[in-house]
Amino acid sequence: MHPQIAIFARLADGGEKPVRQIHGQKTLLSRTVHAIAYDGIHDEIVVPQQFAQAILTFRGGANGEEAPIRVIHGSLTQLQRPDRLGIDPVNNEIYVPDGGKMLVFHREANGNVAPIRVISSDSGIGGAVAIDPLNNVFVTGGSRSLQIFDRTASGHTKPLRVIGGPKNGDKIRGSKNITLYPPRGWIIVANQGVNRHRPMDYSEESFVGVWNIHDDGDVPPRWMIGGPFGALRQARGVVLDPKHKTVIVSDKYLNAALTYYFPEIF
């Protein structure tokens, strides 16, 4: 396995080669990068590095064996196994769910720095996170639920709303990454689906589901794309391209990035 961030043209298709790659020892990347965020305001790429307990920030245009411009790393950080993260470029914050808590760092934090806020909840903090600076909430995804918190929450708190329940809990099975569309309050979730082929990470029931930040309780997704029983086998990453009204999904089993036209949510 080759640690890298491969960067493809928007219209790339099939086996088309990447336009650039961020890789090599100086990048400090390891494999198992399970989250990536592009900050369009400051033109930066942010990823977690869980083996070294670090958060790496690269220039948006980074290419080749290029070192990160900032590294959050050290004894004050409380980082244990940072696997996923989300950024709020409007309020200059990086959210890192880690060890059942949400660690919030200043966007420009560098070196051995403590989080500016730590958020915990009786119901735990899910593994994936996305921030909506317009409606002032952040959403975390657990194995069977989505939790919606006040964006400015701090300390021990309760979610504003929880989506999930006995009827639709399975629909939120293994929400690996979340993205939001603040203008319409959409929560878009990459669901790995019920895995009936253990230990293979393969599920024909994988899909990308769409909920709303105002949903509460046992609410089914409004939309499902890519499955169940579609092209997806193990949806892991999800991101939007609002300009072209598409949703882009990474699939672990297919080793692929799939682009779907999805104007209904924009």
Binding site: M1, H2, P3, Q4, I5, A6, I7, F8, A9, R10, A12, G15, E16, K17, P18, V19, Q21, L29, R31, T32, V33, H34, A35, I36, A37, Y38, G40, D43, I45, V47, G60, G61, R84, K176, N177, R236, G237, V238, V239, L240, D241, K243, I248, V249, S250, D251, K252, N255, A256, A257, T259
Partner: peptide, 25 residues
């Protein structure tokens, strides 16, 4: 044929400035 070296893409990003898809391993 290029080797894409995509392996376990556990996440995905989109660079809105350059209109590019970011695929980490």
């Amino acid at each position: 044929a290029p080797g894409l070296m995509i392996g376990n893409p556990g996440a995905i990003g989109y660079d809105t400035k350059r209109e590019e898809i970011l695929v980490p391993n």
